[in-house]
Amino acid sequence: MDKVQNNKAWFLVLPVLVVVAFSAVLPLMTVVNYATNDTFGNNQFFWAGLEWFEEMVTSSRLHDALGRQILFSGIILAIEVPLGIYIALNMPKKGAWASLCLVLMALPLLIPFNVVGTIWQIFGRVDIGLLGRTLAALGVDYNYTNDPVDAWATVVVMDVWHWTSLVALLCYAGLQSIPQAYYQAARIDQASRWAVFRYIELPKMKGVLLIAVLLRFMDSFMIYTEPFVVTGGGPGNATTFLSIDLVKMAVGQFDLGPAAAFSLMYFLVILLVSWVFYTVMTSLDRQEGR
């Protein structure tokens, strides 16, 4: 759509600017302040330059948390994206059954994060949980509070449970936009199921799939509440992801300087990924001629 050039539109945007500046820019400035200052207490600060950044960049604690974070995001993307596509392909296209599927699938998306944690905490416990009990009955030595591998498995399955529906729903929306004529043409050509998927469905889903991958990456990259409720970052530090580590550092130990430096670097990664996201969005919009 052609837009009219009008700088008076700024007045319409002003309220948003004020609210978001208050809740985003001001706090971020505090963070910048802490990241470059050191204190001996009593609110007396002195300039520390890039000291905290150097400390954080070389800190093995941060490297470990980052490694775990990347591994976690990688694993859940590798599971959720193919599974989401597969589910979307198998979803009924219309009727009451389709509505029911939509509603039930969306249910996990709308559960408060800490309740998601609580659900899996209860579900996985060896003494009272269905999952824990069943695995124990099958002779699997499973205990997510002691064993790092089990803790990881629980957190990953929990995230798959929580968010696969999002990928599936987005892909489903993409599939819905494919005209029937495409499928008819494919049938005339006697295309195989795989060929239909590869050359019709996948290209049509490309846009939404990119959005889904980016959203899942971002949200898994800042995951905090769910693993925190289930494992508390443990056993040991096995499931301490970036956000958990950051909160531990900032609120738990009150190491303001390092935590602030950490926050800023964290934020830069987010900025980078957001930029990719934005570029994808705008190029998609252009393709659709909007």
């Binding site: 963070v31 609120v251 926050s263 987010i270």
Partner: peptide, 23 residues
């Protein structure tokens, strides 16, 4: 501006927890 808004949607709450508390 539109992009800047998006970065706030993507911002990790953990980064903002402490500054919010103080603010």
């Amino acid at each position: 501006l539109f992009f800047w808004l998006l970065t706030n949607r993507m911002a990790p709450p953990a980064v903002f927890a402490l500054p919010f508390f103080q603010l």
